[in-house]
Design a protein around this nucleic acid. Structure first.
Lengths: 101, 101
DNA sequence: CGTGTAAGGAATTCTGACACG
DNA sequence: CGTGTAAGGAATTCTGACACG
């Protein structure tokens, strides 16, 4: 489960190269609660590959004129949708059980 | 194919934390041609998760009293074995083809 | 709001060398 | 041979602020 993709091990300079985004932008999106890097003891930010992908997604949405708070909302909605789908799935499973019981 | 595992994006301090090895050791194993980090423009070393795994393997072999040149040889042998196996496999495939032809 | 930039400082990394064994 | 360490310098990162729009 906790694969390479989610390990926070990449410093901001390399994330900047990987995404093409300025370090300024990357720090700003954190300030806007769009991603949450970890820190070394010294305070240096550490990102995961998942963060890199999320940044690319953010960059696309920014290009489309979306604002940071809209992107944040959209992510929350995505979570909600996922939770809903899971609930429905559980409902169907329960229904199936009830039928056979 | 070229997954996260092989992307060189981790700086030596974090590799040190991940492996428990001192930076001195990590640089020394590079000097002995056991791994090959990339560099940023500024000259900072960048490692992959595959490198991290290799370092853990190296550390185990060092604990067993193996020397760096032995570890290097062992890796080359492993490659050779792999090549051999592939050749044999190709041979069987060719044989199978010939039988049916 | 989103982003660039100059500023000063702190954390990180680099190399070559000396030491010990 | 393998590794620790002190040394000096360079690259990297950090924060808070000013600027523009």
């Amino acid at each position: 489960m906790s694969s390479y993709k989610d390990k926070k091990v990449i410093t901001i300079g390399i994330v900047s190269e990987l995404t093409g985004l300025s370090e300024r932008k990357i720090r700003y999106y954190e300030e806007r609660k769009l991603l949450f890097p970890e820190r070394t003891n010294g305070g240096t930010r550490k990102y995961s590959f998942a963060d890199v992908e999320k940044l690319i997604d953010i960059a696309n949405k920014m290009e489309d004129g979306m604002q940071t708070f809209e992107i944040r909302k959209m992510e929350q909605k995505k979570l909600t949708d996922k939770q809903l789908r899971e609930r429905m799935l559980r409902g169907q499973i329960n229904a199936a059980f009830n039928v056979r019981k």
